[in-house]
Amino acid sequence: RLRGGARAAPSSGDRAQFNGWTAHFDRYVLEDGTGQETPFSHAEGEVLRLFLDSPKRLISRQQMQDALGGAAGESFDRAMDVRISRLRTKLREDPKNPRLIKTIYGAGYIFLGDVEWG
C-alpha cells in the first residue's frame, strides 16, 4: 500500500505487459511488440515497477520517496526526473505529449497504461 491512500496491486511475477510492451524484471529488459529489447537499469526498474503496480493512480513524489527510499530534497527530485525521463525515452514517449507516464504538475505522476502481470 502506498502512503496517502493509494493502493498498490501486488506484482505477481517478473513480467508485466502494458500497451504493446513487456517489462522483464528478471532480465531488466523492455520488449516492444516486434520483439526488440531495450535494457533498463535497476533504478529505472524500481520506478517502472512502482508505476505498473499502481496504474491509473496518482503517485506523488512523497509516495515515490517513501516507496523507493532516498533523502528528501532536490537531489531526490532530480534523480526521479532523470529516471522518468529515461523510461519515457525507452518507451518511445513524445516528451511534449507522453501517452503512458503523465506528469501532473504540483502533484506527481500517473501511469496510464493497462497492466497485466504474469
Results as ranks from 00 to 15, higher is better:
Arg99Met: 02
Leu100Cys: 06
Pro10Thr: 12
Asp26Gly: 15
Arg92Phe: 09
Leu58Thr: 08
Ala72Asn: 10
Ala67Trp: 12
Asn97Leu: 05
Ser12Thr: 14
Ile59Lys: 13
Pro55Val: 05
Gln65Val: 00
Glu31Met: 12
Arg27Ile: 01
Gly20Phe: 01
Thr38Asp: 02
Gln62Lys: 14
Gly33Gln: 12
Asp66Lys: 11
His24Ile: 03
Asn19Gln: 12
Leu91Glu: 06
Phe51His: 09
Leu87Lys: 09
Ser54Cys: 11
Gln63Cys: 00
Phe111Ala: 08
Arg86Ala: 14
Gly106Asp: 08
Ser85Gln: 14
Leu50Arg: 09
Asp26Arg: 10
Val29Phe: 08
Pro95Asp: 13
Leu52Val: 07
Ile101Gly: 05
Ser85Glu: 10
Pro95Val: 05
Trp21Val: 04
Lys90Ser: 04
Ile84Arg: 13
Glu116Phe: 04
Glu44Gly: 03
Val47Gly: 00
Met64Thr: 08
Gly113Met: 02
Arg86Val: 01
Lys102Ile: 03
Val29Gly: 01
Leu91Lys: 09
Met80Lys: 10
Ile101His: 03
Ile101Asn: 06
Gly33Ser: 15
Gln65Met: 12
Thr22Glu: 05
Leu2Arg: 14
Gln65Asp: 04
Ser75Asp: 13
Ala23Ser: 10
Gly33Ile: 02
Lys56Gly: 00
Asp32Gly: 14
Thr89His: 11
Asp26Pro: 11
Arg27Met: 02
Asp26Thr: 01
Ala6Thr: 15
Lys56Trp: 01
Gly5Pro: 13
Asp77Met: 05
His24Asp: 10
Ala107Ile: 01
Gly13Val: 02
Val82Arg: 14
Pro98Tyr: 07
Lys96Cys: 06
Gly106Leu: 09
Gln63Ile: 04
Trp21Leu: 03
Ser41Phe: 07
Pro10Phe: 01
Lys90Met: 02
Arg86Met: 06
Glu37Arg: 15
Leu91Thr: 06
Ile59His: 05
Lys102Asp: 00
Asp26Lys: 10
Gly4Leu: 09
Glu31Cys: 10
Phe111Asp: 05
Glu46Phe: 06
Glu116Gly: 08
Gly35Tyr: 07
Pro10Met: 05
